[in-house]
Amino acid sequence: MAAWRLRTKIFFPQLCRAFAGRRCQLAAERRDAAPGPVSRFCPPKTSCHDWIGPPDKYSNLRPVQFHIPEDESPLEQKLRELRQETQEWNQQFWANQNLTFSKEKEEFIHSRLKAKGLGLRTESGQKATLNAEEMADFYKGFLSKNFQKHMYYNRDWYRRNFAITFFTGRVVLERVWRRLRPKQKLSSS
């Protein structure tokens, strides 16, 4: 068991370095006038990894700043672009969904309070709320009304993740092949 741990401690970091690449450059440095990330998060310029930023205030998802290595292959570029496109699609869906949810929730609360003859504030000045059973009616109705939209979202989400997983496997095989392939010697004439 100790021998296995020792091998893992030696081999694993080498394997990680083999896949990480030698030179680094951030996606933000090589992107030409592309729209910026949702948040203003900016990782250090010397970073060689993807960085995950703070949650977006509309979608509640954490945006990713993708690292672009200088020696990025066309397959690696395709994978990164697919991941970026998926992130933007996901951010947009959840920002719209959360906005719709909040708006409809407020309308539901206002209509129920009005039906009870209550105002938006209690006598003590606090915001008036509904009990859990009444809110359960809203949640059930909202989910039922948006069932089709969520079903299409889940279908597309799985398709995108399978594509990303497939391209990730291809990139890993490409990197392994690049590392194992014998280097061609320069011939001097």
Rank of each mutant, 00 (worst) to 15 (best):
E70W: 13
E70Q: 11
D71T: 07
D71V: 09
D71M: 02
D71S: 04
E72P: 05
E72Y: 06
E72F: 08
E72Q: 15
S73H: 05
S73Y: 09
P74H: 06
P74A: 07
P74N: 10
L75P: 09
L75G: 06
L75N: 06
E76G: 13
E76W: 04
Q77F: 13
Q77C: 15
K78T: 06
K78Y: 08
L79N: 04
L79C: 05
L79H: 02
L79V: 08
L79Q: 02
R80G: 00
R80E: 00
R80M: 00
R80T: 00
R80Y: 00
R80K: 00
R80W: 00
E81S: 01
E81W: 01
E81Y: 04
L82W: 01
L82I: 05
R83A: 07
R83S: 02
R83D: 06
Q84A: 10
Q84N: 13
Q84L: 07
Q84H: 10
Q84G: 14
E85M: 14
E85N: 13
T86H: 02
Q87M: 08
Q87V: 03
Q87D: 04
Q87K: 03
Q87C: 01
E88Y: 11
W89H: 03
W89C: 08
W89M: 10
N90D: 12
N90K: 14
N90E: 12
N90R: 11
Q91E: 13
Q92E: 15
A95V: 00
A95R: 00
A95H: 01
N96V: 14
N98P: 07
N98H: 07
N98M: 11
N98K: 11
L99K: 14
L99D: 09
L99V: 14
L99R: 15
T100W: 06
T100C: 09
T100I: 12
T100F: 12
S102N: 13
S102C: 04
S102K: 07
K103D: 05
K103R: 10
K103L: 13
K103I: 07
K103Y: 08
E104W: 11
E104N: 05
E104T: 02
E104F: 06
